[in-house]
């Protein structure tokens, strides 16, 4: 594939994936009047930063943006780290599991996720409430770990299958214990799959809304509920929502750019054959 063709493909792909986000970026620099002008122009006529000011200062709306941001970052990082490590451990173990048990376990993992729908919001709320974890970031995080762990396990399982079993058997012949062979042989090879799973979990948690809106209130709220508040019901504040989205996207973008290195490196160094 020539570089020109590749560039073209990448440009089309990036446009499709990013255009709503780019659109938000362009919207965030407009005054309200300009957002609703007809016909709408692509670029703002006049760069206007009032949306950024308003969304940060408005008293009646979410004046605790910074708090929400910290909450979301904490929950997303901890949950995704736990889910990634635990899921990799489980996925690895399952991939080394023989015949009879694997199938029911896989089915179990699938069934858990079937319930992660709107039907279960109320029962989950009642469960957490009865053990005193309503409106607690810890309880919220716990629930998310439970619901994202099957996903991460299944994905890790599929990645673990791609890594040859002979490698950790060879390590065991060299005198490694099972744990050592998992940590020293398997984990380095599983890095790509792990990072992918971890990043996905991080963003899935970052933008989680149904449980956040049911389980959190006050200063424990997360960014997603605060964002939804700006575009719900009678009042839709596109430019403020856009400004808020742009602000919260910047740190996430930095994380993504930083971590993509780990997905990219591939097995060039450690193919081990």
């Amino acid at each position: 594939m020539g570089t020109t063709a590749e560039l073209l493909l990448a440009a089309i792909l990036l446009f499709i994936v990013l255009f709503p986000v780019l659109w938000l970026l362009l919207i965030s620099f407009r005054s309200v009047a300009e957002v609703y002008r007809f016909p709408l122009t692509l670029l703002p006529e006049r760069v206007d930063l009032s949306a950024y000011r308003e969304v940060w200062l408005s008293k009646g709306f979410s004046n605790d943006w910074l708090q929400y941001f910290v909450n979301t970052t904490l929950v997303s990082s901890i949950v995704s780290a736990v889910v990634m490590l635990w899921g990799t451990l489980m996925g690895y173990s399952l991939s080394r599991l023989r015949g009879r048990l694997l199938q029911p376990v896989q089915l179990l993992l699938i069934i858990v996720q079937l319930f992660n729908g709107p039907a279960l919001v109320i029962p989950m709320y009642l469960l957490l409430n009865s053990i005193g974890l309503y409106n607690s970031l810890f309880g919220y995080g716990l629930l998310l770990v439970l619901f994202f762990l099957p996903f991460s396990t299944l994905l890790s399982l599929s990645f673990a299958k791609s890594i040859p079993f002979e490698l950790d058997e060879a390590a065991k012949l060299d005198g490694c214990s099972q744990f050592q062979s998992f940590r020293k042989v398997f984990l380095p090879l599983a890095r790509i799959g792990m990072t992918t799973t971890g990043l996905m979990t991080f963003l899935l948690v970052w933008s989680e809304y149904p449980f956040a809106v049911a389980l959190l209130e006050g200063r424990n709220r997360t960014v997603s509920t605060a964002l939804v508040d700006l575009v719900s019901g009678l009042n839709v504040y596109w430019n403020q929502m856009a400004a808020a989205s742009v602000i919260i996207s910047i740190p996430v973008l930095i994380v993504l750019l930083f971590t993509q290195r780990y997905i990219v490196q591939g097995l060039t160094a450690g193919s081990g054959k």
């Binding site: 009646g60 109320i122 709320y125 409430n129 409106n135 809106v213 508040d229 719900s232």
Partner: peptide, 23 residues
């Protein structure tokens, strides 16, 4: 006073769950 603002569309769900959970 502890006043909290919530988004409009979540009102039914929030009131229903809060009632069942005594919150």
């Amino acid at each position: 006073l502890d006043v909290q603002f919530f988004d409009w569309d979540s009102r039914f769900q929030r009131v229903a769950t809060a009632n069942s959970g005594n919150n």
